[in-house]
Design a protein around this nucleic acid. Structure first.
Lengths: 247, 247
DNA sequence: CGTTTGCTTGAAGTAGGTCAATGTGAGTGG
DNA sequence: CCACTCACATTGACCTACTTCAAGCAAACG
């Protein structure tokens, strides 16, 4: 993560387009100070009114759905640098809960900044739609893995996709990365019991597919895995050719 | 569907905000003629360059993912009146395939209309982001059902959610509606084999939960079902309070 | 140092898949 | 009009991938 920008959102958006002076200035002016959150803290709760979007400056967060029988599920993982809360914009109140998975810092871009953003900086508006669209594609892949793969491939796919997304922020990331999730939580993300997650992980280790030094994982047979689950890396680029010109 | 608008997209967007003269005129000018498609026709293929967004004027369409072993999966169902192709905007080429599930008509809003849309009619841009955000919420619910429910509830949930979404377009829709899918296809949507889908459906019929007169289904115990799968209707409203003013 | 939280492992049960066969209505060509 | 096909629904017998239950351990944490 470069430090040349003061603003998290500017930094995030600059991955996709080169912001103009005016655009940067606007975003920086609207964006509020970063705000530290502890592991486990609820960032957006079910029923909350959406307060705008947020950039996760550091740390990891997750979107959870909890059902009345106490089970909870992880629907989405946010990595450092990603924009949270876009999915919540359209809903009158949040359907899901966003929780910090690790300690981290969040930079809010308030709700009342959105109107001028669309009005005065149309390209930024298009960028938000683009981000939402990428989110959607990722979610489709996730749903696809849940619906069509067996347990082993689901787990492989989930790890591969985490790695790929981490690589976007962290260019040159190898095959070793941090997975700050317990086996219970991994199970909640891939739709398995923690017990079976454990058995699969141990099998992967035995087969020499991965190495585990908690909380780090190294994928030793990444390319085999990518074939196993027909993994396509859909997380690195955005088509910006339909954007309006910058202001 | 009212016929007071000539434009599909105007009609769709008017569900959420009252368009101004200028907005309507712009959309109507950009939108190309409706285009008939036969059942089974591919509307967007994997690898296609996104050509803009489309309104499904009549008929049903689906988003499919097919894996190399010949299996295919249904990730999303588009109902008459819905906007297709928003998820594809951010990708440089389509990851999934959009196919007509029935005969129908599609109104394309070309790619080159998007830039002026964002530049000159910022509220419409926000509306697109809003639509994308609603799509995302629906998809999260779907992924949630795949990851956390057993087969019976997954099937129930899928039917409930179809009904709710049909009701948005078709106010006052009762508990009986058309489901233009074979049991194989239902299986592809809910992540089950057609055989098990059949067994579940027959059991539902036996238990007096539903009536089937192909291709129509009537939900006789809708409210029980909604409790069973903690169904929340997240498909009817959009929060538009963060939108910029209209032009 | 006791308690909690998470990992590990085994044994037993079951939801849902696979395989296989039969039935049925809607075309379609003669 | 019948015969043939084809796509789809139905049903049963069997199988297995995953869950549930249960118990023991290790590390972190007050």
């Amino acid at each position: 993560m470069t430090d040349e920008y003061e603003s998290c959102l500017v930094s995030r958006l600059s991955r996709f387009v080169t912001l103009t002076e005016a655009e940067s200035a606007f975003v920086m002016e609207m964006e509020r100070d970063e705000h530290p959150f502890r592991r486990g803290r609820i960032v957006v709760d079910v029923g909350d009114l959406t307060e705008g979007i947020m950039v996760l400056k550091t740390g990891w967060a997750v979107v959870k759905a909890d059902s009345s029988d106490g089970r909870s599920q992880i629907l989405r993982v946010y990595l450092p640098g990603e924009v949270m809360g876009i999915a919540e914009l359209g809903a009158t109140h949040a359907n899901h809960r966003i929780t910090m998975q690790t300690d981290g810092k969040v930079c809010p871009f308030p709700r009342n900044g959105l109107a001028p953003l669309y009005s005065d900086y149309p390209r930024l508006g298009a960028l938000l739609t683009g981000l939402s669209s990428l989110d959607q594609i990722a979610l489709r892949h996730h749903a696809g893995s849940l619906g069509a793969m067996d347990a082993a491939n689901r787990l492989k796919f989930w790890l591969l996709q985490l790695r790929s997304r981490l690589e976007v922020a962290n260019v040159g990331l190898g095959n070793r990365f941090r997975v700050p999730f317990s086996q219970v939580e991994i199970g909640q993300a891939v739709g398995l019991t923690s017990i079976y997650v454990n058995k699969l992980l141990r099998r992967f280790v035995e087969d020499g597919d991965i190495e585990i030094e908690r909380p780090y994982v190294r994928l030793l047979k990444r390319h085999d895995w990518e074939k196993d689950c027909e993994f396509v890396n859909a997380y690195h680029t955005m088509d910006t050719s339909w954007f309006p010109p910058a202001i």
